[in-house]
Design a binder for these strands. Sequence first.
DNA 1: TATTTAGGTCAGCCATATTGACTTAATTAT
DNA 2: ATAATTAAGTCAATATGGCTGACCTAAATA
Lengths: 161, 161
Amino acid sequence: MADLNNLLSPFFLNDKEVKKVIELIFFSYRDFTSGPDKILEKLNFGRAHHRVIYFVGKKNHITIKELLVVLQITKQSLSRVLNQLVKEKFIIVSTGVDKRTKKLSLTEKGKKLESELSSIQIKKIRGVINKFSEDNINGFKKMLYEMIEDNNKKTFQEIND
Amino acid sequence: MADLNNLLSPFFLNDKEVKKVIELIFFSYRDFTSGPDKILEKLNFGRAHHRVIYFVGKKNHITIKELLVVLQITKQSLSRVLNQLVKEKFIIVSTGVDKRTKKLSLTEKGKKLESELSSIQIKKIRGVINKFSEDNINGFKKMLYEMIEDNNKKTFQEIND
DNA sequence: TATTTAGGTCAGCCATATTGACTTAATTAT
DNA sequence: ATAATTAAGTCAATATGGCTGACCTAAATA
C-alpha cells in the first residue's frame, strides 16, 4: 500500500548482502568522525567534546538537562567534558529564568571550533551529495531517519523545530 | 557529465540542512549499535569484541594482521579483546602455513553469538529496506560507500571479494 | 510545608584506545 | 649463510569516555 515499488517488485537482500550494508555503515561512520577527531586531538579533546560543542552550537541557551536528553549520557559523564569546555572558554554559562537551570552558549572561540569541526563533515556530505540525485539524497535522509528508535526520532524532531 | 540529474537540476542543501544529515548519522549510528551493545554487556564484552567476532565470522582463518588492517587499531588494543574471546572459547586460534601467522576462527559458541548480534542489525536494516524502493537502497549503499576514505574503500572491497 | 526538579560533586570502576620499548620466531632477501 | 623483515606478543603508562552509587544545594511547584 505504502509503496508501489515494493508491491510490484519486492526488493530482497540476502543476509550476505545485508551484512555488506552493516560494513558500509561501520566504515563510513568511522571515516565520518575521523576528520574532526584529528583536530580535537590537538586540543586534548575527544568526540564527547565535539558532541557538546555541536549541540550547544545547534541550540543556543540549551540547558544541561536538554543536553543530557540529546546525548543520552549521565550528568557525571557530561560534567567532566563540559567543565573542561567552560574552563577553556569554548562555552559560557548563564542562569536561566528558572534559576535552577543553566543556559549554555558558545563563545567566539567555541563558535570558531564548532565551525571548523562541522565544516569538515559538511564538506564530506556535500561531496557525496554532488555525486547523487535529489531523490537519492532524500532517500538517504529518510532511511537514516528510519534507523532511529522512535523515542530518539522525537528528540531529532525537537532539536529541529 | 556523470549525472544528468545534477546537470539538469543541481541539488543544493544549505549548511543547516546538511547539519540535519550530520545529526541523522549520529542518531542512527547510535541506535544501530545499541541493540548488540545490550547483549554484549551481559557477557562483559563491548563493541570491540563485537567487531572482532564480526570480522572473524566474515572471513574464516583471518590473521591478526588482516584483522588489524580492517579494525585500524593497535595490536595492543586488539590483544586484550582477542585474548578474552579466545579464553572464553568464542574464537579458536590455529597456526597458518606461514608459521609466523595465526588463523582465527569462530567456535560454535562464537558463531552463535555472531549470529545473535548480527541478526539484530540485519533485522533493523531489513526493516528499513522494506519501506523503500530498490533504487533507494542502492543509492543508500552507494552514498555510504562514497563516505569512506579511499584507502578504506579498498579494504571494504577486499573483505568482499 | 513537602516534594520535585535542576544541577553539582566525590569516589570508584570498566572499556577502549593510545604510545613506546622490547622480545621471539619464522620467512625472505642479499 | 647471514641479514633484514615480518607476524605476533608483551609490559607499562596514559587518556578518554562511559558507568554506578551516594550525597548535596537551591529553586520551583504541588
